[in-house]
Design a binder for these strands. Structure first.
Length: 702
RNA sequence: GGCGCGGUAGCUCAGUUGGUUAGAGCACAGGAUUCAUAACCCUGAGGUCGGGGGUUCAAAUCUCCCCCGCGCUACCA
């Protein structure tokens, strides 16, 4: 194990196109924060950076949806996310944003460095350009007639009618969706990063170098990508929202959002040290003493191989953080690459995938509105159930149980017992520690060991285990009190010294709990310290049985956690279901009306009703069914992508509507002679189009 | 279909250089107790370790086949 001088920790830059939910917290932000708080408590040199990811096509798209500007979108969600993180105790040293000038500059510098080293391949291709809007049109912004099915409103990347994947050049009579004009073909240049040239390096670095210390899910995913073979990837896009490509003749071109987003970590670090050195803090919120710093100290955190770089992300980001971004950094030559990328899997919610757009989610701001005084409860319930090795599941019931039977009954209760007993019997002062009995020695020994257990788990990114080890410390306290029964002894005045010794030790455990809990439950840890009238201590003191001096005056105590009643949980469940129901009509935006066609256009299609004679699953395909259809005029083979919606058995005998004169098309080695018409429901389900009474095979639709 | 990850007690999960009666927390049952938010503490019950073959003195762990979940990927005319 390499010894590092300092650590740079990043948490995935949240995309500023909407609110972020508790699954994101469980995936990246909470574990990252716990890890960093622990390092800080140890006095280690660490910087924790994050920020809003504000580029990419989805931002302008969201602006259209909300009927506003991209700028307004990113401002709105940047502030919302920043505030939520803060309220949840996610303590970044800086929460930056990729729309900042410094980030544009940093991204351009890195792009230019790669360019100047000749590491980017320039490729020119012809793409559609809108003269009036003066921009190249992304595939989605071009419509035209589908060459395959004649649909006049096919998109540049896909015909939604026949499902063909297209490229804009395939479209007949293309038009721009922005101005409606006919776009012209214009040559456009893009810059590609030849990922495949780094396969050897990746194999050495990841497959050999990190076989033991990376999580199996991360390692496996990387291996899968590397083994499958990498392709050159365009690092630029024709778009008017993003970071300008810093080259001549690159008008209207921006950096690919996945090129600039991870650089956001670097920019954030750079911004942090620039602000710290200038004394003008805008985004920086240093969470520890950094001492005097220089503006370019950020380089130490990114370019010194004695720095340990750790990316906390969800599993959807693995390829970017383990393959593409490291290649960028490695190719550049001056940067270090991550030592670990402890990506988590996904957290489901009440039996279904979490999804903001489907309304099946608990957004950070929603939780905070309903439970403004309970950030630690959410942190704890997520921590005990992080999707570390596989997808996990959040339920409100489990949230309640974690709160009631662990935070309240075990943790809060122990703290309260120790404090109340001291108030009642020792005037709220730390009693004198007298002669120790074997049970005291044993509990002190256990106390000394426990922080090491927590630390060991944290060093290995095992947060669930670490959280459990924290709770064990409170259990130790409860058991000690139960075993020594000071409330019984106190009835006999001769035992007062003995009772004092017991409570003295119990209070030392409470003080330790504040240290050990700080990374996990920072708000509660601070409250314990207040109740003990104690300044914050550090991990280096953890395990000590002399944190509180004899005679020390304690503060005012109150309950750390309160029970959550069944009604509160029931209300949340109702709220969740109501939200999902209310989202449905919105989520399924109805496809806009297509352009007018003439009767002649329509008449070209031979649409008729047929009957399915046989149906079987296409071998080696998940989606295709191979059908034999009686069309009245013949019996023919039609392939249809409905295997996820209908079984072969239920298709046999069914009447179907088909386009009988569609040009045959070969798929997976078999020719399909026609196309079955389906209606796609809002949830993506496909349903057959049938006459409402049985008609003869071959009946013409008109 | 291919590739990757996972399938262990009612629930959430530990446990792979193969080795004594497979673990934890929660939930459940019984007991003890009353300082504490009816909490704590003790005891107990509960598992064909997805299924089946194989290697071995010995398999949750290695191997092969199959089933299920998740992700990536191919096929939606």
């Amino acid at each position: 194990m390499k010894a590092f001088k300092r650590t740079t920790v990043t948490a995935a830059l949240p995309y500023a196109n909407g609110p972020k939910h508790i699954g994101h917290l469980a995936g990246a932000y909470i574990p990252a924060d716990v890890y960093v708080r622990y390092l800080r408590s140890q006095g280690r040199d660490v910087v924790f950076v994050c920020g809003s990811d504000e580029h990419g096509t989805a931002i302008p798209n969201q602006a259209v949806k909300e009927n506003t500007t991209p700028r307004a979108i990113i401002d709105k969600y940047h502030v919302q996310m920043r505030d939520c993180f803060q309220k949840l105790g996610i303590a970044f040293d800086i929460y930056h944003r990729t729309s900042e000038a410094l980030h544009h500059q940093t991204s351009q510098e890195i792009f230019l460095a790669l360019f100047n080293k000749g590491l980017l391949n320039e490729e020119v291709s012809e793409q559609y350009y809108d003269d009036e809007a003066k921009l190249f049109l992304a595939d989605r912004y071009i419509v035209g007639t589908c060459p395959k099915c004649g649909n006049p409103n096919a998109y540049g990347d896909q015909c939604e009618k026949c499902g063909s994947s297209l490229s804009p050049r395939d479209l007949i009579n293309p038009r721009s969706t922005i101005t409606g004009n006919v776009p012209v073909l214009r040559e456009t240049k893009h810059w590609y990063l030849p990922l495949e040239q780094y396969e050897g390096w990746l194999k050495e670095w990841i497959l050999k170098g990190h076989a033991d210390d990376w999580k199996t899910n991360v390692y496996g995913q990387c291996k899968s990508w590397i083994d499958a073979g990498l392709q050159p990837r365009a690092m630029t896009r024709d778009l008017n929202w993003g970071i300008k490509v810093p080259l001549p003749d690159a008008e209207g071109k921006v950096l690919y959002v996945w090129f600039d987003a991870p650089i956001g970590y670097i920019s954030a670090t750079r911004a942090f040290f620039e602000e710290m050195s200038s004394g003008k803090l805008v985004y920086a919120q240093p969470q520890r003493k950094f001492g005097p710093v220089a503006a370019d100290d950020w380089k130490k955190y990114w370019q010194d191989d004695e720095t340990k770089l750790v990316h906390f992300i969800g599993k959807d980001n693995i390829v970017f953080h383990c393959i593409i971004f490291p290649i960028m950094l490695h190719a550049h030559g001056e940067f270090i690459v991550p030592d670990n990328v402890p990506a988590n899997e996904f957290m489901n919610l009440e039996g279904d995938k979490m999804s903001t757009s489907r309304g099946w989610s608990i957004e950070m701001h929603e939780y905070l509105e309903d439970f403004p005084d309970k950030p630690d409860v959410l942190r704890y319930s997520l921590l005990t159930n992080l999707p570390e090795t596989k997808d996990s599941e959040f339920t409100w019931k489990d949230f309640q149980t974690r709160n009631n039977s662990e935070l309240v009954n075990i943790f809060g209760n122990f703290v309260n017992r120790a404090l109340v007993l001291t108030q009642k019997n020792f005037n709220n002062q730390v009693p004198v520690k007298g002669a120790l009995q074997p049970i005291d020695e044993a509990v002190i020994a256990a106390l000394r060991e426990q922080p090491g257990r927590i630390a060991e788990a944290l060093e290995q990114y095992r947060f669930r285990e670490a959280t459990a080890a924290l709770m064990d410390l409170a259990r130790l306290g409860n058991k000690y009190l139960a075993d020594t029964e000071p409330w019984k002894l106190v009835k006999n005045e001769g035992n007062l010294e003995r009772v004092g010794t017991i409570l003295h030790i119990a209070l030392q455990i409470v003080a330790n709990l504040a240290i050990a809990a700080e990374p996990f439950l920072p708000f509660s840890a601070a409250r314990i310290n207040e109740m003990l009238n104690l300044k914050t201590s550090h991990w280096t003191d953890a395990g000590s049985d002399t944190l509180l001096a004899e005679g020390h005056e304690l503060g005012v105590s109150s309950l750390l956690f309160e029970k959550i009643e069944d009604e509160v949980i029931a209300r949340q469940l109702e709220k969740l279901h109501a939200k999902k129901a209310s989202m449905n009509p919105v989520a399924h935006t109805v496809t806009p009306l297509k352009n007018e066609v003439t009767f002649d256009d329509f008449a070209k299609l031979d649409i008729r009703v047929g009957r399915v004679l046989t149906a079987e699953k296409m071998p080696k395909s998940d989606k295709l069914l191979k059908l034999t259809v009686d069309t009245g005029v013949d019996k023919r083979t039609v392939l249809s992508g409905i295997a996820k919606h209908y079984t072969p058995e239920e298709m046999v005998g069914k009447q179907v509507t088909l386009i009988a004169n569609l040009a045959p098309r070969k798929m997976m080695g078999i020719e399909s002679q026609g196309m079955i018409l389906m209606a796609e429901d809002g949830d993506g389900k496909l349903r057959l189009l049938q006459p409402n009474e049985v008609v003869m095979p071959g009946a013409v639709v008109s």
